[in-house]
Amino acid sequence: MSTEIGTESLTHLDAKGNAHMVDVGNKQITERSATARALVEMKPETLAKVIAGGLPKGDVLATVRIAGIQAAKKTPDLIPLCHPLMLTKITLDIEPINESQIEIRCTCKLSGKTGVEMEALTGASVAALTLYDMCKAVDKGITIKETGLLTKTGGKSGNWNIDQEGSK
């Protein structure tokens, strides 16, 4: 089984195609960061209640923020081949972008031997799921969309941002 796609190799597969955890022992420690986003769409009335704090479950945005931070810290417990990391910073920015959409951005940082993309993606994803959970009693049609990596810095592969790939 090939472990290469184009000129890139799949680092989580060995020569036989078996999954394994990558050995990062010989990699250099560098400053690394990643930002991921999730876009959540809901009825305008629901978003207005979220912003005003008018939902029965309490402060939705505070709960969403804490859930995203907690999830980023627990990423290796959820994603089988992720390394446990000593994250030095996790931020969750939650902003309405119009009357029916709210954007969640999770940024993770550390000095280490492996990147934090999965931590940022997990934080944004779980924050979005928590937003759904907190609001589902009043709006079951909430959708989570456009979850993805926006930027990453540091490491052997250097810096990357979504603008290099073009809009999806």
Rank of each mutant, 00 (worst) to 15 (best):
Met21Ala: 00
Met21Pro: 01
Val22Tyr: 00
Asp23Asn: 03
Asp23Trp: 02
Val24Phe: 00
Val24Glu: 00
Gly25His: 08
Asn26Phe: 07
Asn26Met: 12
Asn26Lys: 12
Asn26Ser: 14
Lys27Leu: 08
Gln28Gly: 11
Ile29Ala: 02
Ile29Leu: 01
Ile29Asp: 06
Thr30Asp: 08
Glu31His: 15
Arg32Asn: 13
Arg32Pro: 02
Ser33Tyr: 04
Ser33His: 11
Thr35Ala: 10
Ala36Asn: 04
Ala36Trp: 03
Arg37Phe: 10
Ala38Ser: 15
Leu39Thr: 01
Lys43Ile: 08
Pro44Glu: 13
Pro44Gly: 14
Pro44Asp: 11
Thr46Cys: 09
Thr46Arg: 05
Thr46Gly: 05
Thr46His: 04
Thr46Leu: 02
Val50Arg: 02
Ile51Phe: 01
Ala52Glu: 10
Gly53Arg: 01
Gly53Thr: 08
Gly53Lys: 06
Gly54Glu: 15
Gly54Ile: 02
Leu55Tyr: 10
Lys57Phe: 04
Lys57Ile: 01
Gly58Phe: 05
Gly58Leu: 03
Asp59Cys: 11
Asp59Gly: 01
Leu61Phe: 03
Leu61Met: 02
Val64Trp: 12
Val64Glu: 13
Arg65Cys: 05
Ile66Thr: 14
Gly68Leu: 02
Gly68Phe: 05
Gly68Asn: 03
Ile69Lys: 13
Ile69Leu: 14
Gln70Ile: 09
Lys73Pro: 01
Lys74Val: 08
Thr75Arg: 03
Thr75His: 01
Thr75Lys: 11
Pro76Leu: 08
Pro76Ile: 06
Asp77Glu: 15
Leu78Cys: 06
Pro80Asp: 04
Pro80Tyr: 02
Leu81Val: 04
His83Glu: 09
Pro84His: 10
Pro84Trp: 02
Leu85Glu: 08
Met86Ser: 15
Met86Gly: 15
Leu87Phe: 06
Leu87Trp: 10
Thr88Arg: 11
Thr88Met: 13
Lys89His: 15
Ile90Cys: 07
Ile90Val: 14
Thr91Pro: 03
Thr91Arg: 14
Asp93Glu: 15
Asp93Val: 12
Ile94Tyr: 05
Ile94Asn: 06
Glu95Ile: 02
Pro96Ala: 11
Ser100Arg: 14
Ile102Pro: 03
Glu103Tyr: 00
Ile104Gly: 05
Arg105Asp: 05
